[in-house]
Design a protein around this nucleic acid. Structure first.
Lengths: 229, 229
DNA sequence: TTTCAAACATGAAATATTTAATGTTTTATG
DNA sequence: CATAAAACATTAAATATTTCATGTTTGAAA
C-alpha cells in the first residue's frame, strides 16, 4: 500500500455528485480524502474495524469478504470500478460486517465518514442518491445469496460466471482475476467442485478455459444451467 | 384484509420519529397513511410490485419471502413489530425484490412512499435514521445468508431457533408461528431435515417440542451447534 | 361433525457434495 | 535461476442432503 500524491481525481464520483451537491461541498469531501493504491490481495478495509472511511473505488476490482471464526471465507459480491463501496458499511455505524479486499491492483479514495455524513445531512437529495447506490450493492449480494440457497453447485457457478462477464469484466471473454478457491468462496462450495465444473463445461464446449483466460462460448446453455439450477 | 378506521396510532414510530421531524411533518405522513389488518398467510406487499408504500408493522410477525421461477420459496428474514420494514424495498426504486407475508395476524400502516420521500428530503437527520433502520434489517438478512453459506443444516437450524428466540419472540420458549416447511425455507434445506433435526434435539433434551410449542432447554449446547456449524 | 388438505413424522434409496490423497503446473521470491 | 508455496487438477471414498414412499395427526371448511 503506497500513498500517491497529488490530489485525487474522483472523476466519476465528481460527475454523478455534481447533480446533487455544490462544488464547495465536493471540495470539502476532496480535501479530507486520501488516495491510496492497493496491490492485489491487500485489504482495503477490514472486517470488524470501525467505519471511519467510505471507499470510492476509482480503478480495479474488489471482493466483499466475510471471514468466520474458523477462518473460512465467503465472498458476498465482487465489484469493479468506478463505484462507491457501500452496502452495510455505508451509513452503518457498527463495526464493518465484512472486509474489502483488492482482487486486482486498485486505486482507491478514502473519504472521511464524518465529513461525508456532514455533507449528506446538508444535502438530502445527495443522501438519497447515495442510499440508492448502497441499495444497488445490497441487491447484488442478495441475488447471489438467493442463487446460493436455491440452486445446486452448477447453477451457482453458472450464475457467477454470468455475473462476472456482465457486471465485472463487461465481456464474454475475460482474464479471470479470481482463483478457483475464490470462486468456490463466492459459490459457497469446495474448490474441487469449481475445478470439476469448469473442466466439464470446457469439454462440453460451453466455455473455454486456458488457465486464467475464460471465454463463454454458449451463453444460452450457461443461462439454461443457471435457470434449472 | 380489512380496512380499519379511524386514524392509525403509529405509536412506536411516532415516538422515534419525534426526535427528528416536526409534528406537522409527522401529520403529513399520517394523513396519507392507511391502516390495514392482514390475517396469517396474507401478502402485505408483493414481490415484483412497485414500491408505492413503505410498511410500518405495528403488530404481528412478518416474513421476507423470495419466490423463484420454480415457485420455490426462500425466507430472507423474519421480523416482529414494531418495525419499519425496509431493507431493499425501502428507498429502492425498482420493483420489490421480495414479498412481505404475515406469519401471524398483523396490524400494518402503509405510508405513501412519495410523501415519505418528501419528508425525508426535508429532514435529513430523519433520513439518516431511516437509513440506519434499513441497514439494520439488511444486516439481519446478510447474517442469515452467511450462516446458510458457511454451515451445515444443523448449524443453520440452530441459528434460526436462536434468532427466533432472541429477536422475534423475545423468550426461550415460544409458540412457533412458522411451519416446519417455513423453517426449511429459512434454513435453505428440506422440510424433512428440519423435522428430523428438531426431533433429534428433542431426544437429546436440547429443546422441547410439542407441536408448535418450542422451548430451548440447553441454549449453550444450541450455541455450540451453531458455532461448530 | 365430517371431511379433506396440509402439516408432521419416519426410514430407505438416490443423489449431491466434501474430503482426502496424490500429482502437475504456475507464480512469487530469495 | 532455483525453489518453495500456492494454484490447478483428478479420482475414489466418506459424508451430507434430498427425494420418495408411506402413514399419522392436526386444523380449517363444508
Amino acid at each position: 500500500m503506497t500513498i500517491n500524491e497529488p490530489r485525487p481525481e474522483f472523476s466519476w464520483f465528481r460527475r454523478i455528485s455534481s447533480q446533487f451537491i455544490s462544488d464547495k461541498d465536493f471540495d470539502k469531501l476532496e480535501k479530507t480524502s486520501v488516495k491510496l493504491i492497493f496491490k492485489k490481495g491487500e485489504t482495503i478495509l477490514k472486517q470488524g474495524g470501525l467505519p471511519t472511511h467510505v471507499v470510492y473505488l476509482e480503478k480495479g476490482i474488489v471482493k466483499f469478504n466475510y471471514e468466520n471464526e474458523s477462518s473460512k471465507n465467503l465472498i458476498l459480491t465482487i465489484v469493479s470500478a468506478p463505484k462507491i463501496l457501500g452496502g452495510a458499511n455505508l451509513f452503518y455505524k457498527d463495526n464493518n460486517l465484512f472486509s474489502f479486499i483488492a482482487v486486482e491492483d486498485c486505486e482507491v479514495i478514502l473519504i472521511d465518514a464524518k465529513v461525508l455524513e456532514e455533507v449528506l445531512v446538508e444535502n438530502s437529495r445527495f443522501a438519497m442518491m447515495m442510499f440508492q447506490v448502497a441499495s444497488e450493492m445490497f441487491k447484488k449480494s442478495v441475488m447471489n445469496f438467493i442463487s446460493l440457497a436455491h440452486k445446486q453447485k452448477e447453477g451457482r457457478i453458472a450464475d457467477i460466471i454470468l455475473y462476472l462477464a456482465a457486471e465485472v469484466y463487461n465481456d464474454t471473454s475475460f482474464h479471470l482475476s479470481l482463483t478457483r478457491k475464490e470462486i468456490a468462496e463466492f459459490a459457497g462450495c469446495s474448490t474441487e467442485n469449481v475445478i470439476m465444473t469448469l473442466s466439464k463445461w470446457q469439454t462440453e464446449k460451453i466455455i473455454s478455459v486456458d488457465g486464467k483466460i475464460v471465454a463463454i462460448n454458449d451463453i444460452d446453455k450457461l443461462k439454461h444451467i443457471s435457470k434449472i439450477g
